[in-house]
Design a protein around this nucleic acid. Structure first.
Lengths: 354, 354
DNA sequence: CTGTTAGCGCGTTCAT
DNA sequence: ATGAACGCGCTAACAG
């Protein structure tokens, strides 16, 4: 009598079968209608199962009429695989660089994985987010936002694979997809020095941001290579507005820089606009501006910024691929997938003014 | 003997308890460690339950040492509420207007709901997406992308609440959050006519896009009100590039328009850049440009576009609020929350040239 | 190839 | 206030 237990909670469910309030069909309902066992139904919805043609068509017909779909939640409960991937992005990243989230979502979808989206803008946010992700049994975490070392360790201890996107910890092996712009920074600086620039400035991102730190380091090293003085520096927060503020601060002093390198495109756009439209100096005539990312907007005709592009599409695919392999083999060695950047020449740099 | 069934599948789970491969703690594990029943543990994690202080502290201590968190998947299975909301956005929307997704996510988070993100760029995409959402037992769908009437009906028949964001069907009541720019379009057109413009053009969005259709209709009506000839029209796809193409097409003919209204900011930016930098005409001196949305970028100093802003933050909060109330009262009357737009004056319009 | 059986981890009666 | 028992919808052994 397994199939007919009393239903004390929702007696109306059977009392008015054609009412609007009917519950969704389960595999039992399909089995009953098709006159087969419940497990037969289950098998029909499992890709590689062995089912006779007759059985399959009977079941599928019944499923069709009942609008039945397997319950992914229940399936996840028993298979221990939710097919949910937590994707962590900062508000800023998504704002300035929406392509990242978009491509990640596409790549995950293509592999049958669903995106549980979280925005994290502080370490405290991250704390709550990883608890949430854990409660929802995510199969993995892709983090393009801040995550503390302790938070990372919490996840790995709980056997949750984590793939970092353009973030990493020093002295701690992690699965990571990463764009290394070292060579292109060299090229860029060399080109600028070749154009006669000798007074450089750097508009940085947030102090604690790894991407920014790395980019600073590379720019400084490249300048040293060329025997040029280190750059004047300004700390921004990756926003357009902070780029504009930086332009004010850098260009109104004595001996202003003739070349400004920004840690991302958005600040470069702010810097360029402020320089050109508020301070009334020519870009690139008076000041050359370059940056990192290679976003769509940075190439608009009003900007045409010389920038160092990351191969975002391939990076996102790599992140998802890495995630998939970790899901199948959690014990494997940590892997680092490094991509080469590309120097995208624009019209925002030119010869240094006399 | 409920607590000690044989475990044929994972004998190593108990064989080496301190191995790296331990499974996550369940409420049973916590109960055993605390010396109480499983249901007691369950109650301790339910907000309004009646538990003694002693019990609560015992359980919490045990939960702490085992790093126990309730399994949201299992909970969802039994409570029939997943706390998952499917959010549907088009690639374009997220690209041009990332704030929408960001604010929706924030608002949902604040109410304890999680975002299951889907990108849908065609009706075929939507088909798969609603199946996926349904399989994952989402508590509701917020759609800022295309959804056919049939697809909407599929969802409502399945008792899944749907809230539309700036989309609607004619002659079909739906829950919807919507920005009505009618008054501001009137203002804008009046202002342009007052500045002497008489030859208007309209850069539309995709033919099937409702937002675009509505905006076209309003612009045409407002022009008729002012006894001005209907606009020359060009179909774009909301992208920067299509705005640039439209500028080429519209401005190189005889009797070119002196005022161009674009169905969104991104096309206006493309149109403005093309006009100014490729066609060599002054904006706003030769051509005035205005648009819809009020995105962050449209206000950058290179653009400063006169645009009709939507109150996105409040709209997103309203969408989530609507979603919540539908989740509690699925049978309620459909509700339409209409928000007033705001005309944001920029420097992209001026007197018509003589 | 098919049906039977036993849980996945939890919330929720119903007794006590 | 607490515990025993049940079942949410499904997959996976196992037996036939």
């Amino acid at each position: 009598m397994v199939n007919s237990p009393q239903r004390p909670k929702a007696p109306e469910a059977q009392a008015r079968p054609s009412s609007g309030r009917r519950r969704r069909a389960t595999s039992y309902d399909v089995a009953r209608l098709a006159g087969v066992s419940q497990s037969a139904v289950s098998r029909c919805f499992k890709p590689g199962a062995s089912v006779s043609k007759a059985m399959r068509s009977k079941v599928m017909r019944a499923a069709e009429t009942l609008h039945y779909r397997p319950n992914a939640i229940a399936r996840g409960l028993i298979t221990q695989r939710s097919h949910l991937i937590a994707v962590l992005v900062s508000g800023r990243l998504n704002f300035d660089y929406p392509e990242v989230l978009f491509r990640l979502t596409e790549a995950l979808s293509a592999r049958g994985l669903r995106v549980l989206l979280f925005t994290v803008d502080s370490e405290a946010d991250a704390e709550g987010v990883i608890e949430q992700a854990w409660q929802f049994q995510v199969d993995g975490v892709i983090s393009a936002s801040h995550l503390s070392r302790r938070q990372y360790e919490t996840l790995t201890q709980r056997q949750v694979p984590v793939v970092f996107f353009n973030r990493y910890f020093t002295n701690m092996p992690t699965d990571i997809v990463y764009c290394d712009p070292a060579r292109q920074v060299g090229e860029l600086v060399e080109r600028l020095v070749g154009l006669g620039h000798s007074r450089f400035a750097l508009i940085r991102g947030p102090k604690a941001n790894m991407v920014s730190q790395e980019r600073e380091r590379l720019v400084e090293a490249a300048l040293a290579d060329q025997n040029v003085n280190g750059p004047a520096a300004f700390f921004g927060d990756f926003s357009y507005e902070s780029g504009a503020l930086a332009a004010d601060a850098l260009l109104t002093g004595s001996e202003p820089p003739t070349a400004i390198i920004c840690a991302n495109d958005m600040m470069a756009m702010g810097c360029l606009d402020q320089t050109r439209h508020r301070l009334g100096r020519a870009v690139p005539g008076d000041v050359s501006i370059a940056s990192f990312d290679g976003t769509h907007m940075s190439q608009f005709a009003s900007y045409e910024i010389t920038t160092i592009r990351q191969p975002i599409v391939r990076m996102c695919e790599a992140a998802v691929e890495l995630m998939s392999s970790r899901a199948h083999d959690p014990g494997a060695e940590r892997e680092k997938r490094v991509f080469e950047a590309q120097l995208l020449p624009g019209s925002s740099i030119a010869e240094a003014p006399a």
